[in-house]
Design a protein around this nucleic acid. Structure first.
Ligand code: FES
Ligand code: FES
Lengths: 161, 161
DNA sequence: CCAATAAAAGACATAAAAGTCTTTTATTGG
DNA sequence: CCAATAAAAGACTTTTATGTCTTTTATTGG
């Protein structure tokens, strides 16, 4: 295979993840904001973008949306930025996914039938349903505020160099 | 909320599934072809599109691709169509996903870090890894040929009216 | 009040996914 | 051989996701 062909081969494998880019950036940003908020610090978009390795303007749009929906708080002007009130830092990753992409991930049919149905199930319904519920539980159990300690200790990361 | 607002509310919930449309159509089509192949019948694109409620030209493209990759067999001309050789009907859903979208779904980081890593894990690495493995096992255990009986008995469905 | 700051809002641009159509090639039965 | 058939190939369009830039609005400290 030629070198160019090899590159195509590699890029062919850069697709299809569970979450959209928007959701990925949103979760990383929210976890970062939560960490700073615990110290009473508000953070600006530039800092968030750097810390989470996300496109600056894009993460701005996403947070603007989450802000309208009340999942994150913000303040304009000098000393302004994004932060989380006590209640918001208890929000789950599932809440973020729902706010951005709705319930489809948690209720939709794995093979794309118009809806998931117990009565007229698709061939993988039972197995898929279980996985879907596992995903939901994982995201519902994960609260935005709970990641700070491990991040501080550098046991987990929001970006990779 | 206005009626228009309500419509937007509804449409906001039509996004973000685990599989791409391409993968969904591919799996439905492959299961259908397998069912017919057991009876020694080759099926054309029009019939596949109808039976699986997929866009005709699009499923054509998808099967063309899978055919090049050897996951499905085809024959041109009258009495031609798509069919599965014995070996192909033992192929797993994981094989189909891999052929179309690569390994990202099975190996990628849930929060979109450049790669998933045990050494520098993202905050949800452990939980996500488990879910990811469950998805892989579900798809690897499901063989294309094994769905025919339930489809015949109308216990499962490839389309919903 | 004012200048600086930072998010909100809205318009715009690009890339990728999804879907369609037309032409070509292979196969078949007569 | 020939006409009909059906997939392969390739070009194309549309839609959605992703990403960028510019202008407006709110807030602050001096
Ligand atoms: S019907 Fe397909 S997952 Fe339930
Ligand atoms: S590092 Fe994110 S899932 Fe492994």
């Amino acid at each position: 295979m030629s070198f160019i062909g090899f590159l195509f081969f590699i890029f062919a494998f850069v697709k299809e993840m569970i979450f959209s880019k928007t959701v990925e950036y949103a979760i990383r940003a929210m976890i970062f904001i939560a960490q700073k908020s615990k110290k009473g610090i508000k953070v600006g978009i530039k800092e968030i973008a750097k810390a989470t390795d996300a496109p600056e303007y894009f993460i701005g749009k996403i947070l603007q949306d989450l802000s309208r929906k009340g999942l994150v708080q913000s303040l304009k002007g000098p000393t302004g930025g994004f932060y989380l009130e006590e209640e918001s830092s208890n929000c789950s990753l599932a809440d973020i996914v729902k706010a951005i992409d709705g319930n489809k991930l948690f209720t939709g049919c794995g093979l794309g039938l118009k809806s998931c149905s117990e009565i007229k199930p698709c061939p993988i319904h039972n197995e898929f349903k279980k996985v879907r519920e596992d995903i939901y539980n994982m995201l519902e159990d994960a609260r935005i505020g709970e990641f700070s300690k491990k991040l501080e200790k550098k046991l987990t990361f929001l970006r990779r160099k």
